[in-house]
Computed example of a mutant assay.
Amino acid sequence: MPVLPGAEPYRHEGGEIGVLLCHGFTGSPQSLRPWAEYLAKHGLTVSLPLLPGHGTRWEDMQITGWQDWYAEVDRELRALRDRCAQVFVFGLSMGGALALRLAAKHGEAVNGLVVVNPGNKVHGVAARALPVARHFVRSVKGIVSDIAKEDSEEVGYDRIPLHAAHSLRNFFQLVDGDLPQVTQPLLLLHSPQDHVVPPADSARVLSRVSSTDVTEILLEQSYHVATLDHDADRIFDESYAFIGRLAPRAGEEGTATRG
């Protein structure tokens, strides 16, 4: 099945500091592509994979689950660690949850985290109905393009496959249990006006991680897909400054080889 235009994975070979970016549920690398290109322009080695079942048609997600999505970013992290001295993991929405689990499971192999509107729970009556409803209803209305900025659009699915949504619910529960194992420096940016993931999810993450180096930033001008919204430049600048503080050699010229 052909990949939707703009949804292709993105990679850039830069210096010895690497960044793995994880996109969201039913979304695609397109939502993080400007962020990835900004980091690449600053000399970093960047990996932005396309998660299994994403970027083609929503029906392709029906046969995938959190194990498939997590395995993809886990592979990418290991590949970056093989050729970079330090690796940071960034994520949007479900991608934030993927980043947090990578940090919990890989420990010192992840040098820092930046998460934007991270998901922590599937909310509402629909969540409780998922275990049964998914056997009778294939999909419901999608959640893409929650963006305040006019003329900015997210490439993703207009339907949510309920089998995949049920798997996401289980994944969020798993990640919530992992949060105390997250000890890395953390930059968390979230939008007070988010019509997909409520601010309570960010508060929950902040209350449960064991990180002592934590920065919280509010994105007042953006909705859920803040990386394509009015606050995008702020996200990019703050995340690069975060890396620069923890990895002073970030952006130096040179081939990405493990130091």
Rank of each mutant, 00 (worst) to 15 (best):
I143V: 14
E150M: 06
D151F: 10
D151Q: 14
D151I: 07
S152T: 10
E153Y: 10
E154K: 02
E154S: 00
V155D: 03
G156K: 07
Y157A: 05
P161N: 09
L162Y: 02
L162K: 03
A165N: 09
A165T: 04
H166R: 04
H166Y: 13
S167Y: 07
S167A: 14
S167P: 04
L168P: 06
N170A: 15
Q173V: 15
Q173L: 15
D176K: 14
D176G: 13
D176C: 11
L186S: 00
L187F: 11
P192C: 11
V197L: 08
P198W: 02
P198V: 03
P199A: 04
A200H: 02
A200D: 11
A200G: 11
A200Q: 11
S202D: 02
L206A: 11
S211T: 02
V214W: 08
T215C: 05
I217T: 10
E220Q: 10
V225Y: 03
L228F: 10
L228K: 05
L228S: 12
D229V: 00
H230D: 08
H230V: 07
H230M: 11
H230Y: 15
I235F: 12
F236K: 06
D237W: 14
Y240I: 07
I243S: 01
R245A: 11
R245T: 12
R245L: 07
L246E: 00
A247N: 00
R249D: 11
A250R: 05
